[in-house]
């Protein structure tokens, strides 16, 4: 059963095309890595999948039973967030807001607790977000995303500000979540871990796109895995 079926999709900002004629599918349990140069439209595609911008052509079909409430999103981190005055718990709790009414439900507490523990940051809960390392901050944002949804994760360059050790640890964490049954769609610039963990790769290029399994991507050779992407 496909969670997303994307057919001949075009996305644009104010009439300027960013993505043209893109087709691919994401099935339950897939781990899709989206790669491509800066400005190739990776973040834009995630926003399209999340329903934040609508296609100018083609369509995005969402599978049965996949609503907004099932998708957790980890956006590309902005500079102003890094020194934001909020505690870890406060940040994670904002992930539960899409379900709660005026007053926080008792469910919020357990959900926050569960995800703090799942990501190994339970003892950081009272710490200021701004005082955490980049890797810890990404875990906090991941916990927030998991509070918002437990079926599908969309991650936008989650390792961009991490050192290599923290990045590989983060990739293992995502891998664990994937093994637990979560579907993962991740934008990344790191080809080797993408090849190691992902089941599928989507390469956004300026002229054409490539979509297939990670194994096939490895064999596709220099055309798409050339040196330019290892930057």
């Amino acid at each position: 059963m496909a969670l997303f079926t994307v057919q001949n999709l075009s996305l644009a900002y104010e009439g300027r095309h960013v993505i043209d004629n893109l087709s691919f599918t994401v099935a339950q349990g897939d781990y899709l890595c989206i790669v491509g140069e800066n400005g190739s439209g990776k973040s834009t595609l995630l926003r399209g999948l999340l329903g934040m911008i609508s296609p100018t052509a083609g369509r995005i079909l969402r599978g049965d039973g996949l609503g907004r409430q099932d998708m957790g999103y980890l956006p590309q981190q902005t500079k102003q967030q890094r020194d934001f005055p909020a505690s870890v718990e406060e940040v994670v709790r904002t992930g539960c807001l899409n379900r709660t009414g005026l007053l926080p439900s008792p469910d919020t507490r357990t959900k926050v607790e569960e995800n703090l523990r799942r990501l190994g940051i339970a003892d950081l809960r009272r710490r200021p977000y701004a005082h955490l390392s980049g890797g810890q901050q990404q875990r906090v944002l991941l916990a927030r995303a998991l509070c918002a949804a437990q079926k599908l994760l969309l991650l936008d360059e989650p390792t961009a500000s991490l050192d290599p050790a923290a990045a590989s640890e983060f990739y293992r964490l995502i891998d664990d979540l994937h093994r637990e049954g979560l579907t993962v769609i991740m934008v990344t610039h790191d080809i080797p871990p993408a090849m190691e963990y992902a089941t599928h790769i989507l390469h956004l290029g300026t002229k054409s796109h490539w979509f297939g399994t990670a194994d096939a991507y490895g064999k596709a050779g220099s055309g798409f895995t050339g040196g330019e992407h290892h930057a």
């Binding site: 907004r68 904002t94 926080p104 949804a149």
Partner: peptide
Amino acid sequence: LLFRDRILSMTFDESFARASGQ
């Protein structure tokens, strides 16, 4: 008093807040 968390959510990360349907 009522919307402290929502104000925090929007202030901290508008993309996330919009994406998760707040």
